[in-house]
Amino acid sequence: MNHFIDLTLNGIANGAIYAALGLSLVIIYQATRVVNFAQPALALIAVYLAYAVYLATGSYWTGFAVALASGTLMGVLAERLLIRPVHGRSPLSAIIVTLGLLLALQGAAGMVWGNGDYSFPYPMDFRGRFSPAGAFGLGAVAVVTLLLFALYRFTPLGLRMRAAALHPESARLSGVRVGLMLTAGWGIASAIGALAGMLAAPPFLSPNALDAVFVYGIAAAVLGGLESPFGAVAGGLLLGVGLSYVSGYAGPELTTLAALAILVVVLSVRPDGLFTRPVARKV
């Protein structure tokens, strides 16, 4: 029983990271219908910058703040400089741009910081059953989810962002600057991606440190539904717990295969994800 509880708690802690990454993907997908394959690279650069600041100042939290700020800035710049010029063309154009950005940023990280592993600190003590570090990750994702919910549901900015994503023409006719809202969405999503990177990176940081987590992040987003931010969070937590059981009971070598199997099953049975309700739209 203890083993089961340990696996569950560990799965929740990991699931929070997948949820954050899934959330960042969903926010961008909702707004632009683009799966941002560059997200792990944007997060990676933010984490490297945090690491540099941590080394310079000795303060994890200063590095943490720098990661979020630089993540936001990189998301904004990526949208304005790379995605905006191809917006409105084939969705494939934007996807290829994000893939190109992924390769370029990962290569740049290797050139600047080398391909070796750096020892990267946890925000808090990581030892013991459901460690403070694990609790911090879960709490951070919960706070982000609640803030996002409040932003989308209760603020004029959130309403503008939703309108811009759902029906750009109607939003424009209502005075909404759609381009600005898309940029804001990329900024917010990349900040959340940077948070996921900060949670996922320890104990070692390398140019490929976030690759596996990104695969699970995509799986979480698809599991919950690419249209549903809260589905992505639920999907991330479910995936984290599920993969933890697979790792604990069947062997850690099967976790990637299990994630793939879950993706295939969900896409076959509920292509819109577990938490997305198909809405009949009159057009």
Partner: peptide, 17 residues
């Protein structure tokens, strides 16, 4: 051009934002 996924009230608010 009403936005089907938003509520009636949200659509209305959007116009005056």
């Amino acid at each position: 051009g009403v936005i089907a996924e938003l509520t009636v009230e949200e659509n209305m608010r959007l116009g005056g934002l």
